[in-house]
Design a binder for these strands. Structure first.
Lengths: 271, 271
DNA sequence: CGGCAGATTGAGACTAATCAAGAGGAGTGG
DNA sequence: CCACTCCTCTTGATTAGTCTCAATCTGCCG
């Protein structure tokens, strides 16, 4: 495990420049809570390819991905690696259960993660409801994303799966106008994620190229030349390019105090 | 939507006989909390095949599955239905995000669900940390289960996928000694869940039968005649038949009061 | 320059989908 | 009671799509 850096950021300082404060768990926190969170965590950097948590390894801490992509994979007895999921900025890594029984976390790109010891994490959540809400919102969002991913893979052949995944990537990175998409994953990882062989993935990429939906500028650089055609090839023709700005729950719902046993209506729903 | 019954159970009374109190969300609650929860929810019964929540329908309530199996599916523009997941006893249905964007919930068997209006749900969670912990534990467990399911499907052909799924079912229903497994899902639903056609599923079942791993007593009744062979056929040979009793978080961790701004160590980790 | 790993392309083998049709059961109406 | 329809489950033959194996190409590093 390579730890390129292991810093406890000054309150607010590091977070200011962190893109994850806009996304996922940190994005759900208000400034005050974020500051409190910052003092409890320490940021660790991992270089591409390094192992974050081994399979079967018990993790006694919870992490929020500050930058980069984390590969959630499993290695079978026969030695094959299967990429189950790619976690990104703002998502929770190492939540209880993860890694506990057969998943490994690996840095798919250079990654930095804000770790909090399990005990401190629990204490932070218990401080006030909005902290818990941030956590539940994150979990729900991640659960949902997984389901959406499965949806995108189902009932599609290899070319359609690739096209569908590229569409999702476009939305996620928000590259609607500038049609250039960088795919930091290796062919091997992407193929595994999309449940196909490297060779088939390669053919699928070139098929999209041949049909003028994309242009392969470099091995890891895709230009989306015709997003409409890409949608058709993904079997998702009627999808409007609606913004995907994750709908965070209304922060005005933050109640800093807890109710007693009396049943009080909360100021607003969680989401 | 068929509502065969719609009852507000008396505190404790209905819950006593409910199997879900041992599992999932309700299983994480202590007796007092469970009683409080019971007065807020109303149980609704759905007969097999009835729709619980339509695709795109906004759900303003949260449900805990009291009994039966709930099918989480999506219907594409071309009219094909894809079963993404089967939710069972004790799991959360209709969490925020679900149904919001393309999933439908349908009763795969006769089902009863304890519903709580969103607002009351949030209020319940905010009452004290253990309630939130029960929720986060449930979410994490469900997230994990989804990942395990994907793991079971990856890198396997149709026969292996079926065998793998059957193994999971054995563990879940705890039928280790008495080797009889009832599969309440229709061939159509099961095939969709396992990502194959009905025809292929049928052939896979009979292949397991031919190889003496199982015996098909009835169309929905499987006798596991040789669990070791079944493991081999599932490409999961080295799996011990370890109990899967979901590891619930230690209930002694229940803290009925909340900490202030000071950082206090919680009595025990969440899980 | 050679060695190496990843990416690409090609040809044949094999899996699972598709199309087609039969078997069995449940419900309906005469 | 039977004839009829409808639906699910099952089985068979054909075909399309992927995987496998193999070879070549590319860029990178020493």
């Amino acid at each position: 495990m390579l730890h390129d850096a292991n810093l406890r950021p000054h309150v607010g300082e590091r977070c200011q420049s962190c893109a994850a404060t806009k996304n996922g768990f940190c994005g759900y926190l208000d400034a005050t809570s974020l500051a409190k969170f910052a003092v409890r965590c320490h940021r660790t950097a991992y270089s591409q390819g390094s192992e974050i948590a081994g399979q079967g390894e018990e993790i006694d801490k919870v992490g929020v991905i500050a930058s980069g992509l984390v590969k959630l994979a499993t290695i079978t007895e026969s030695g094959d690696e299967f990429v189950l999921q790619i976690l990104h900025e703002g998502q929770i890594a190492g939540a209880p259960g993860e890694g506990g029984d057969g998943f490994a976390l690996e840095a798919a790109t250079d990654v930095s993660i804000c770790w909090v010891p399990r005990a401190a994490w629990d204490a932070f959540l218990c401080e006030k409801p909005p902290h818990f809400q941030a956590y539940t919102s994150s979990l729900t969002a991640q659960c949902d994303e997984t389901r959406k991913f499965i949806m995108g893979m189902r009932g599609r052949n290899t070319v359609q799966r690739l096209a569908s995944w590229l569409l999702d990537q476009c939305k996620e990175t928000g590259c609607e106008e500038k049609p250039c998409l960088r795919v930091p994953l290796s062919r091997r990882d992407l193929a595994s994620l999309l449940d196909m062989t490297v060779e088939t993935l390669c053919r699928a990429v070139h098929q999209l190229d041949d049909r003028k939906a994309i242009r392969l500028l470099a091995s890891d650089l895709f230009e989306i030349t015709d997003i409409v055609k890409l949608r058709v090839l993904a079997k998702r023709p009627n999808e409007n390019a609606a913004p995907v700005a994750a709908e965070f729950f209304d922060n005005s719902a933050n109640r800093d105090s807890w109710t007693g046993d009396d049943i009080a209506m909360p100021a607003a729903p969680l989401r």
